[in-house]
């Protein structure tokens, strides 16, 4: 049965854009008519250090704050989250709720038999796919990995439309945002790479849209039930 509220945990490494992805995810859900909240958790800011962000999407007001300890969905942005324990929780799926979903960005199978058994018992579906390669194919840069992961999330949910996702992405890149020095530098690298901001946004939108379709088809294939109720 679809839930009235879900919590998403995004363990990632510093520089991958998981904070940006959670921000856009919540903005898009807000545009779709949900209650939504996003927040990051990080230590001293540096590339490749563990960094997590969280999004909560709900048909009822969201009071819950901080780290998502009991997630419905986990999105693993980097192999090292699992292989090197760069996660705020061990194992990385600690606290996952029954009937949940895990999306892993990896070109290799990373779960061992005991992981698979535990997740099977909870009826948690796992999609492992190399979304970094997918981003390179779609946008020509690994920097769009977070957009691919974002599209994958919404493809699995199915209740946040592509126009709402587009609004979320445009909101993030067309408005002036305060970010840390590291994020501001990355933003400027991305912009230089795409020469023009609109080109950047188009590539991001296309990547997210393609990942949306891919996951949407995968959900039908594996029989993943609707996770979140449509907004009221």
């Amino acid at each position: 049965m679809a839930k009235d509220s879900i919590k998403i945990r995004m363990p990632a490494l510093g520089g991958q854009g998981a904070v940006t992805a959670a921000h856009i995810a919540a903005t898009a859900a807000d545009r779709e008519g949900y209650y939504a909240v996003s927040n990051p958790f990080f230590g001293a800011e540096k590339r490749m250090a563990p960094s997590e962000s969280y999004a909560r999407i709900s048909t009822v007001p969201v009071y819950d704050r901080g780290e998502v300890i009991y997630p419905d969905i986990i999105m693993v942005y980097h192999q090292q989250v699992i292989t090197m324990g760069k996660s705020y929780t061990m194992p990385f799926y600690s606290g996952i709720k029954a009937d949940g979903l895990i999306i892993i960005n990896s070109d290799a199978e990373l779960l061992n038999e005991s992981d698979k058994k535990r997740l099977d018992e909870l009826n948690v579906k796992v999609l492992t796919k190399d979304f970094t390669q997918f981003a390179i194919e779609q946008a020509g840069t690994e920097l769009a990995t977070n957009m691919a992961m974002l599209g994958a999330l919404f493809g699995a949910l199915g209740t946040v439309s592509k126009p709402a996702i587009e609004e979320g992405i445009k909101d993030r890149f067309l408005k002036k945002y305060t970010a840390s020095g590291g994020t501001a530098t990355l933003d400027s690298v991305i912009e230089k790479k795409f020469k023009k901001k609109m080109e950047l946004i188009d590539k991001n939108l296309n990547t997210a849209s393609a990942a949306f379709d891919l996951t949407s088809a995968w959900c039908k294939e594996v029989g993943l039930q609707q996770i979140l109720q449509a907004p009221t």
Binding site: V37, N39, F41, V62, R65
Partner: peptide, 12 residues
């Protein structure tokens, strides 16, 4: 306010 829980949390 509580740091991160409010300072870094994005909401309507």
């Amino acid at each position: 306010v509580d740091g991160f829980f409010v300072s870094h949390t994005r909401e309507a």
